[in-house]
Design a protein around this nucleic acid. Sequence first.
DNA 1: GCACTATATGCGCATAAGCACATAAGGTCA
DNA 2: TGACCTTATGTGCTTATGCGCATATAGTGC
Lengths: 105, 105
Amino acid sequence: MNYSQAMIRSEILKALAHPARVLIVHALTGGDRCVRELNALMNIDQSNISRHLAVLKRAGIIADRRDGMRVFYHLKAPCILKALKCAVEVMKNDASSRNILLQER
Amino acid sequence: MNYSQAMIRSEILKALAHPARVLIVHALTGGDRCVRELNALMNIDQSNISRHLAVLKRAGIIADRRDGMRVFYHLKAPCILKALKCAVEVMKNDASSRNILLQER
DNA sequence: GCACTATATGCGCATAAGCACATAAGGTCA
DNA sequence: TGACCTTATGTGCTTATGCGCATATAGTGC
């Protein structure tokens, strides 16, 4: 694998690497959601939700569809769930160092 | 899922979200490697390799083992490969927007 | 047109991440 | 011990991210 391939992969991972975006992706596994619904679901400023959605869209992870005033978002790449599950596995396999990590921030 | 769970997951994803670290993980799928070998493999300053390794170790993705002067690193969580494969799938499913992404930087 | 709802974006600021360079720390072997 | 090899870390700097706030853009319906 060369560096530019690695760059593309890291772009996608980077798009997922934010707690709010993890929450958004998780919420979208339950079906399409519009910005307002996501906003109600988590305690984050609407403008930031929009920005996080833009990041995920830009990475090709989600897509949008307008319906009247609202814009609904849905997952484009179901494999994303595997990536998130992987994170959970790492967490389980490594409870001790994880605690350290949590302590330090 | 709550915010702190999402934070833990995002920490792990963040650890993977850098081209150099993607390359490192990829290299480690071929077996243990010491810092010098990784350094020879990719064209990155040794001090940065060490730092990237520290990030991955801190996230519980890799572990190290000293052998004489050298420190060998190995993958701790094989599921990481699924996360990387996912990135590839997104890339394939979304070649067009990916091109845009590449153009813009 | 106007008022209203929903979503996106511009801007300034604070903080985090990444880098290159120098150097410290840990280990080997003559 | 001293010369050497390998890996980690301190420092200063630049750039990227994320945030809140205000405001723009888009659509609906009176």
